[in-house]
Structures are given as structure tokens and as C-alpha cells.
């Protein structure tokens, strides 16, 4: 995945069974963002792989004041890349979890 300067990681073990997972997002390289992020902490949240989109969460983060509106695409892409990786991995381990 492209280095967006925003890091998104799993905040818990993913056994591939639950549709909602905990993710943690933080800014690794503020210079890659257009606006100044409000906080330099790690933001943890749950994400439903089946019902929600990364754009939903990115928009909510903007509305909650964590990021500037102009960074909504970067934040959404960072989450999307991580979610894609999780779903790819789940596909691979699916035979084991059934």
C-alpha cells in the first residue's frame, strides 16, 4: 500500500469471524497531510467490514475534528488499504476458520 503518512493497524487479534473489528489510526508523517491534524495520538475505533465504508469513518473523523476536511481522501485511503489487507487475509485463512 502507498505510504500516505497515516498508519492504520488492527487494534486486536483478527480471527476472521467477527464482522466488526477494532482499528487504530495515527499520523506517522504530518508533512504528507494538507491540514494540521488536531491530535498526535492514536485513534482507536471499531469498523464493520460488512456494513461500513472507510469513507464513512474518514468523514466522521473530520466531523469530530481529528483531521482537516482536505485530508478526508488520505484518511479514507489509509483505512481502505488496511481493510483490503484484512479481507484478503481472511479469504486466505477462511478454510481454516470453517
Amino acid at each position: 500500500a502507498e505510504d500516505t503518512g497515516v498508519r492504520v493497524e488492527l487494534a486486536e487479534e483478527d480471527h476472521g469471524r467477527k464482522s466488526s473489528i477494532a482499528l487504530r489510526l495515527w499520523v506517522e508523517d504530518p508533512k504528507k497531510l494538507k491540514g494540521k491534524p488536531k491530535d498526535n495520538g492514536a485513534i482507536e475505533f471499531t469498523f464493520d467490514l460488512e456494513k461500513e465504508t472507510p469513507d464513512d469513518v474518514a468523514q466522521e473523523m473530520i466531523e469530530s475534528g481529528f483531521f482537516h476536511e482536505s485530508d478526508v481522501k488520505i484518511v479514507a485511503k489509509s483505512i481502505r488499504d488496511r481493510v483490503a489487507l484484512i479481507q484478503w487475509r481472511r479469504e486466505r485463512i477462511r478454510p481454516l476458520t470453517q
Partner: peptide
């Protein structure tokens, strides 16, 4: 306890904590 919580109007909770030292990128 340096956790802060922000709840978005749509109901999602965001919990903010310090980034683990080991995860910060070298300058």
C-alpha cells in the same frame, strides 16, 4: 490515564491514546 474519548453524532466512539513509542517513525 491519558485516554480521551470522542463520540461522533452517528454513534461511533473514537478513543485517543498516545502512540506507542515503538510505533513512532524515526524523524
Amino acid at each position: 490515564n491519558s485516554l480521551t474519548q470522542v463520540v461522533h453524532s452517528a454513534g461511533r466512539r473514537f478513543i485517543v491514546s498516545p502512540v506507542p513509542e515503538s510505533r513512532l517513525r524515526e524523524p
